[in-house]
Amino acid sequence: MACFLVPAAEAVATTIATKVMKSKEGNPDTVKVQLDGAELVEAEKIPFSRKLGWLNKLLWGGSSLLAFEHVWHGEIVPWFPFLTAASNPASAAEMLHEMSTAGITMSVLVTAVWGCMLVVSSVIEKRAQKALPTES
């Protein structure tokens, strides 16, 4: 009905947060790592705003394709009120129920997957720095 609106709203919030964070971030940390397993190179750690960008892309991408599905099923129309379910109180209540169940679960799952990605990327970053040969 309109479950995609919840992740889309989250996408708006995270996009604003990313822009604010990007403007406040200083120079990225520089570390020495073996990127191709052979030579030691100086590399910049990616800032948190870029990692938040991953969540933006997941949310925007997912909700835009889901919006298309709703157009396909005739649930979004090009005239007011744009959502067919919003035209009468009974279906509007059903739509709000779907948004509060499926919509919120979608947002939570996407955010949880992004959280897992953060954990995995942090482990990879730490492992890459630990694997460095000791300088003598």
């Binding site: 992740p7 991953w54 991408g61 394709l65 889901l66 996407v110």
Partner: peptide, 10 residues
């Protein structure tokens, strides 16, 4: 990103 986002939602 687009396809994974949509896959999670579906």
């Amino acid at each position: 990103w687009m396809y994974w986002g949509a896959s999670l939602m579906w």
